[in-house]
Simulated scan of single mutants.
Amino acid sequence: MTGFTHINADGDAHMVDVTEKRVTEREARAEAIITMAPETLAMIVEGRHHKGDVFATARIAGIMAAKKTSDLIPLCHPLMLTKVEVDLQPQPEHNRVVIQAVCKLAGQTGVEMEALTAASTAALTIYDMCKAVQKDMVIEGVRLLEKRGGKSGHFKVEAE
């Protein structure tokens, strides 16, 4: 790995200049997991939450968060996303919801941070909506699963 691109010659943080980079198709997929009590998960899946559809709200929150990533992460470039998808899969056998977010664009910089922000925010939204029912839910496993495009090429987490 070479030096950090967000640090200039004087050691100061700065936004990377991507002006000369080629526009290429870029895509990233990230994941977050929220674990909870079986009763909490059943309430969500069965649509019995008094605040409404938890998954629909989390999905929209994730999409909105991806679009606002550059407002949240100081050195991220504002991006013109062409796709944001947030998928929430309940896994009752593990008392959890696995959230995967996909972000895509044609641009000069990657979309990893947008995908990670979408997955994280969807998990946080589930927590927020359900905290009155259960306060000890755990959000974990926030990670990049795959990225395509750009100078660094293709990255994919090895199968576990």
Rank of each mutant, 00 (worst) to 15 (best):
M1K: 06
T2N: 12
T2I: 09
T5E: 05
D12F: 10
M15A: 07
D17N: 10
E20Q: 14
E20Y: 12
K21N: 09
R22W: 15
V23N: 14
V23Q: 11
V23F: 11
E25S: 15
R29F: 14
A30D: 09
A30Y: 09
A30N: 13
I33L: 05
M36D: 01
A37Y: 03
A37V: 01
A37P: 06
E39D: 08
T40I: 04
V45S: 10
E46S: 13
E46W: 08
G47A: 08
H49C: 13
V54C: 13
V54E: 15
A56V: 12
A65D: 03
K67Y: 03
K68S: 10
K68W: 07
T69I: 01
D71N: 14
D71I: 03
L72K: 08
C76L: 02
M80T: 12
V84T: 11
V86K: 09
H94W: 15
V97K: 06
A101Y: 05
C103Y: 03
C103H: 08
A106W: 11
G107F: 02
G107K: 03
Q108S: 06
T109S: 07
T109P: 07
G110H: 00
E112N: 07
E114I: 04
E114G: 11
A118T: 03
A118I: 04
A119S: 10
A119Q: 12
S120W: 06
T121Q: 11
A122L: 07
L124D: 10
Y127V: 00
D128H: 08
D128W: 04
K131L: 02
Q134A: 00
K135N: 03
L144C: 05
L145V: 01
L145K: 07
G149M: 07
G150K: 00
G150S: 02
S152G: 07
G153P: 04
G153I: 00
A159T: 15
A159V: 13
E160G: 14
E160H: 10
